[in-house]
Design a protein around this nucleic acid. Sequence first.
DNA 1: GGTTAGGATTGG
Length: 803
Amino acid sequence: MPFHAVVDGARTGVQVPQHLTRIPINLISTSSDLTNAIVKGKVLRKGPLVSATLHDFILKAVIQEEDSQPSSSAQINAINIVLFGELAKNFSEGVSPGDVVMASGFTVSKSPTASKDKLHPLHLLLSQDANIYCFSQSSSLNPRSAVDSKRSSTVSAEVLNKTKVPKYTYTRLGDLKSGNVVNVYGVVVFFKQPFKSHGTDFCSSLKITDQSNRNVSCTIFCEKLEQHPKIFQIGDIVRMHRVKVKLFNNAITLVNTFGFSVITFDGKSSGTVEPRTSSRTFHFDEQDRKTVEELQKWISTQNVLPASPASVTLSAIQPKAYFDLTCQLLAKATIDTTCTLLRVWDGTRSPNTFVSVDPNDVEGPTSFSREKESFIANILVYDNHSMFAKQLKLGAFLRIYNLRAVPVSSKVRDINRNQAEAGDHLALHLHGGTSFGRGIRVLPENSPDVEKLKRAIAFLTEDVEDFTAEPTDLELHEVWSTPPEFLEDKAETNSTCSTSAEGSCRPQQQQVTLSQLKQSTPGQVYHVRAQLRSYEPSKLHQALKLFCSKCSSIQDIPDDELLATIFSDASKNSENCSLPKWAVPGRIELPSGSTKRAVRFYVSPRLKEEGKPKELLFIRGTTLEETCHLAQGYKNIVPVTSSESCLALMDLSSPFLFRGPRRYYGCKQCSQATLSELPSLDKLLDEKIIAEALGVQLLKFVLLMKLQLQDATDTLEVFLWKHAELFLGVSAEEVAISQEAQSSVHATLESLCPTKGAVGLRPWLDLSLISYWGDGEEGQKQTCYQICSPPISRPSSGQSEHT
DNA sequence: GGTTAGGATTGG
């Protein structure tokens, strides 16, 4: 290795070789024998990393000898050094001004800037044969040095060996020693959302644990909310840098100290490890990913998490219970100076939470349709939470912690109301204070819980018009080799809620038999009770499709055999080609069979500047297998090839992006792909941002099935399409990568339509169907049907009305 | 380079 960080030589085993002889800077001349010479100096200045030629970097720096006292002003003890290639890169990443470095294996030549900068007339040239040893002043590497170090922490020189030695050292919670400043990983077993302290900062209080099974309380003071850990639930994983170990009441606690930073991860494995942070620059490497995955595994195998107030849906609220609620904010109203009303839903039927409010005080819609109202809960939030609630945006996805359901007796009912209507109800309160982690958190749009919530409320938020507005039926029928259809008419959603149909009330109207449905006018939503007679395709992977929301085309997902051919053809095309101006090239060693081989990659200098150069790699010349292998180690991989002597994206028949196990495709028809540099972003890169930057129209994973329903009167073929995710309770994207999601779909279908057993014993389903006019063969009109609700199944008995 | 809090519910 040409670059070494000698932080604690005894510990890391890195030593400056004994055979080298120190040469004072002022004695360096063109006639010096430099074979075994080594110079030592403090880094005075460090220039930027410059991309010089196609495959190279240059970095200039100035070092000054600290321990030599120039006997006369004529003796110069500072010298320019010029580093090339990997060494320049490592120096750029690993060395800060003020660090002491030693250099060997260099050559010298005349310094072109000597007359201007008055430094040494020669400069040192360090290429791949040279060595740099860095004695970092950083406090973050080693807890012991951190305590002694008077210097504020700089993140520097943690690069020792890029692949084997971690940039940061993490202390197990069982090994914490009072007084040390440490970096730690931990699983959250208790937390409070940040709250305003009596001082200048917000305060987060949490308790974490790890494989050493020690629980440690942490207190984080930060002025800005975004600097606080983004904890959504117990079981999340936090990584904290530079926390000080203190003793309080005889117990070890951690408090943030100078240079503190934190990132948070989901405690449940989802295939990819996505750090939650607002920080533009944070270090996250392969080792971090492994650490997080080990903790995720540990959580899943150990019973480490305390029984937390379970996340509960509105329909499952128990009176007197405390619980956490994940929901969407629809409207809010000021009740008084200490209390705000939040109107929310989560897609399940709400208990009666009547709150009287003046419509003039309401922000957002003052009323909803009667059926929508039956899904809405009213929550009163007090004091500190009331203040916070006032700045919440309508439509936001929230998690409300330690919500309480208080039974309210009917004694206080309005005398004018009918007794039955004004019956007992639940009052939902978020009391003041932060005990038991009480608080409200806005969940980001991309969190798995929000994705789940969106699916659950889809049937409430999408009006019937949405179904028919999309010209997708053309595609639906083409996929099934049936006459193409196209929608024109719009259905209406005049609906009333049948209160007699307890639990099955949906925003739609008449319950009809299949026979009646076939004779009724298209353009409406109907409620049916039916059994699932059959479904196709029987093989789930055939139900998974790619959908373009721009041109509404649907296509199959290419199989690996086809993809392998595309990759192999592309890699044959290895001619030299011109690079986009921004691309910084590099090479990665890949194990290929028994031999290693190097493949080319390109990175964006902007991401590099932001401290995450490997966040997005453009890879050239790999096989499909190798690309998948690389995708396990790097967050975002975009395969590229050479096209007409220019670097270009690969054919859009193959995925344009690999993210962990996930593959993303673009629409051939709607994309205008160009290899552009990514815009500067505060947000973490995701498939949407990358697709947009590359001019790719991202294709959505969708599920498309055809079901045959039956009741006593008839059978009916219906599409399961727009609401397939809701119906099957999974996201199509998960089905594409997760065996668990696939099994869940199989289980759902098997429960509705068992392969064995009498047809009559199959469960009866309460379903909402939308019917609409489509264009049939040779311009003929034909009625089509789509499912637009989740299935609510009932035992096969009690269906006598149809049998 | 100083402060805050230091989990623990009954309350509209």
